[in-house]
Amino acid sequence: MNFRYLITVSLLFVLTATTLHGQSRRRRPVVPATLHIEDLPQQPLDTLATDDPETRIIIFSNNTWRYYRPALKVRDSLPVYMQHWDTSQVFAYKSIAYEDLPSVVDLNLVKDLSGFKAPVVGSVLSKYGPRGRRNHNGVDIPLKIGEPIYAAFDGKIRYAKYNTGGFGNLVIVRHENGLETWHAHLSKLNVKVNDYVKCGQVIGFCGSTGRSRGPHLHFEMRYCDQTFDPEFIVDFQTGQLKYQTFALEKQFFNIHSRASEILEEDDDDFPLLASAEGDTASGDILERIAAAQKKEEQQTKTATVSSSNAVYHTIKQGDILGRLALKYGVSVSQICRLNNITPKTVLKLGRRLRIK
């Protein structure tokens, strides 16, 4: 009797243990073979202050972070960030004809110098303007692969993705004054569309994607899709901003600048910029840059000699730019451009201004 009882109890114990073990195995969580940080739960843990009062940094539980700029969100209602806001195509102002643009646009660039940082600093290898039978709508600056590219001014990202028209990885930043800055051939993007960026923020890294013959930054400035020479505004060699307010005349635009979305970078005369391994520009390239700079200096000297017919005016009491423009039959913006001044520049007595 006791023997049968022991056998029965033993069988029940074995069956129960087997059942529980099977349930335990079925309930064990499945752990992925490779666990990525972005797969972990992302809960905000803390915020950190930055040098910019408008910007804080949020620290998340999965060891990631991002900028937090609540003050910038109020700018969503600005017309410049609502009208002609196209995040899928490079050209956003196709409904605005060149003929409809004003003769002069006063671009208020910065309140002070803290509002600007050069996207990169370096020698301009290929300038804005005609390149053979084509137009070159920006400037090219050779760099190492992976060098950071900065936002020149505060703004909002309108376009950030790979472009099949030749730009490669392209970031377009629209700024509050309507100016857009284009950054092409990037190896990696550091922003996404509709992000707000601050001056000096890294928006991407130099590369050689798209139609490119070596790592460099192709940089453009556009207003209503129309290009103009970025060197009017930025000295890339020194990284300095030339103007606080710039009188952008309609005649500065390349009227063919938006005839095609294809980036024409493949001229046979365009030299190989640098090796794909990320080296700096080779000695041959540096020689080409030096030769181009020497040629430009010679052209400047020639232009100086040929400017013997230039008209100058010495500032006297009561002189203002508007009166001088009327007196000599020129525009205020022309006087500003010839003398590297702005309409707000204080004219000192005795200063000699070039008028024509």
Results as ranks from 00 to 15, higher is better:
L45G: 08
L45F: 10
L48H: 13
D52E: 11
P53C: 09
P53D: 12
E54I: 04
I57W: 10
I59L: 15
I59S: 05
N62K: 11
N62Y: 10
N62V: 03
N63M: 10
N63C: 06
T64Q: 14
T64G: 01
T64W: 08
Y67A: 10
Y68C: 01
Y68M: 08
R69D: 07
A71G: 12
L72E: 14
V74F: 06
R75D: 12
S77H: 02
Q83L: 13
W85T: 04
W85Q: 07
D86K: 11
D86L: 10
S88C: 02
Q89M: 12
V90A: 01
F91G: 00
Y93T: 10
Y93V: 02
S95H: 15
S95T: 15
A97D: 12
Y98E: 08
D100W: 02
D100T: 09
D100G: 06
L101W: 02
L101D: 04
P102K: 09
L107F: 02
L107D: 01
L107R: 04
L109T: 04
K111E: 12
D112I: 08
L113C: 04
G115I: 01
F116S: 04
K117T: 09
K117H: 12
V120Q: 07
V121R: 15
S123R: 13
V124K: 08
L125A: 14
S126Y: 09
Y128F: 15
G129S: 03
P130V: 00
R131C: 03
G132S: 07
R133F: 07
R134Y: 12
N135P: 03
H136W: 07
N137P: 03
G138F: 02
G138S: 03
V139S: 05
I141S: 09
